[in-house]
Simulated assay, not measured.
Amino acid sequence: MDITRVLSDRACAFPAGLFHHASIHNGTVYTTGQIGGDVTGRLAGSEVSAQAEQLFANLSAILQSANSSLEHVLSASIFLTNTADYTAFNEAYVR
């Protein structure tokens, strides 16, 4: 089985060293779950909107490292701990 592992130096590396950011198999990129943390794992503020922006920056960096981009995403599963954050998160998701 031909699988390429991807680790971006521009995305959150938390928990550091325990996983790759993505795997590529048969031309499809499968990414790991992401949080709104910077490369050190520190959250991008306490507001969900700032964390969402960081999350998408991380995902974009990972996809670029895999020679892909956000425009090629087929499916995304989003998990929020508080449904009251839906609107703020969705605004970042739409951008």
Rank of each mutant, 00 (worst) to 15 (best):
S60A: 11
Q54W: 11
S60M: 01
N67K: 07
L59Y: 10
L55D: 00
I62F: 07
Q54D: 00
N67S: 12
S68I: 00
L63G: 05
G41H: 15
Q54T: 02
R42S: 09
E71T: 08
E53R: 11
Q64E: 12
Q54C: 01
L43I: 03
I62E: 02
A61K: 03
L55W: 14
E47S: 06
S49C: 06
I62K: 02
E47T: 06
S60N: 12
S49D: 12
A50Q: 13
L59M: 09
S68V: 03
N67I: 04
I62Q: 05
V48T: 10
S65I: 00
N67L: 06
I62A: 01
E53L: 04
E47L: 12
T40Q: 14
R42D: 08
G41A: 14
S65D: 13
I62L: 04
A50L: 10
V48W: 09
A61P: 06
L63P: 11
R42M: 14
G45T: 11
L55R: 10
L70D: 08
G45Y: 14
A50P: 01
E47M: 10
G45I: 12
Q51T: 03
Q51L: 07
E53F: 02
L70M: 09
L55S: 02
A66D: 08
S46L: 11
Q64V: 04
G41Q: 15
G45Q: 09
